[in-house]
Design a protein around this nucleic acid. Structure first.
Lengths: 183, 183
DNA sequence: TAAATACAAAACAAAGTGTTTGATAACATA
DNA sequence: TATGTTATCAAACACTTTGTTTTGTATTTA
């Protein structure tokens, strides 16, 4: 890819990220992104169709890193026997998310939060089913999946936005403690 | 309150609700709301400062009905002894929400979802603490509160958007089953 | 070196925002 | 019923934002 393209794309991402720390997604204008990134108007629209496309591209970029190692794609992941493996993989994900915390803080606030969390849940819904088979809740399977996926993604939001004093290991532990059945 | 005001306010609410079924909050313009409600431009702005104010007003209206009975304000609500009371109160809330399901479907989708869920969680965070004292999770109290509040609000979202075949009693049961500790 | 590509700057139409004006109709009260 | 008040509408407005187009320049690639 052309170096110029890379530079421009990164400049726009950085500008967007900076602005997201100051104000909500809905109140950020393309003009502001252009000014902050110091690129031409036509250049922005050559890279992204709309402001929403930019947001989506940014989410995709992050998730490609976070889920780069194929979570849940290998061997025996029966929860009851491999619960510890699951917790380790979650910790791994949390470390990746922590690397992106600067971007995440903005993405997780207010109106862009819904978009980010939506994409996040899509990934988790693909990765989680094999692990929750062993949970044996006495409720519909898709409710459990939603429950676990939402709990984890909201755990991440809680962590990144205001409780960063905890380590990935601790956060994974909190989550497992609340999800795990005792009976 | 003047009948004309009531009529206008309701017309705007209805128009807004109708539009929310078709498109996301961010893509709805004030102009569309005005056209759909068939009111004058200046009339809209006499009632609401901005589109966001309208959304907030609509959420507030709904919650005032849903939480009209003082949840968790009375007597003995220790979870371990009064868990059944808690489940009954949640069921009660779910019935109220079911009455508003036409409005909720739109409010819970995409970018307005974040706003609604935010207000919803604010209410729940006030009402839930007394009930979760008995849960005895081995994790920070504010994490548990966030976990329970998010679980319930996401349960409602799951229910309203695509799983309305379940009764309020069933939904409350699913939630309690996933939240309750066995040990 | 030559062709292709990415860029900046500027101008543009179109759409949306929020306010103000004056006239009309609905309301409350005496 | 008569009178003053208030909500409404339509129209016009200055303003902001959007997304496109054009032209000339700088960078990359082959």
């Amino acid at each position: 890819m052309d170096r110029r393209q890379q530079k421009t794309r990164q400049a726009i991402f950085n500008a967007f990220s900076t602005l997201l720390e100051r104000k909500s997604f809905g109140n950020i204008t393309v003009q502001e992104i252009i000014d902050e990134a110091n690129v031409g108007r036509s250049t922005f629209y050559a890279h992204f169709e709309t402001k929403d496309s930019l947001l989506k591209a940014m989410c995709t970029d992050i998730f490609q890193h976070v889920f780069s190692d194929d979570l849940g794609k290998e061997g025996n992941h029966d929860f009851s026997h491999a619960g510890h493996d699951f917790e380790k993989e979650l910790t791994h994900i949390l470390y990746h998310l922590q690397d992106n915390r600067k971007n995440l803080k903005g993405l997780l606030s207010c109106d862009s939060g819904e978009i980010f969390m939506g994409y996040f849940k899509e990934y988790l819904e693909q990765a989680f089913p094999i692990f929750i088979n062993g949970l044996h809740y006495n409720v519909p399977a898709d409710y459990v999946l939603n429950h676990v996926v939402c709990s984890f993604s909201e755990t991440v939001r809680w962590w990144i936005t205001g409780h960063e004093q905890y380590t990935p290991e601790q956060i994974a532990g909190f989550f497992m403690e609340c999800i795990r059945r005792q009976g």
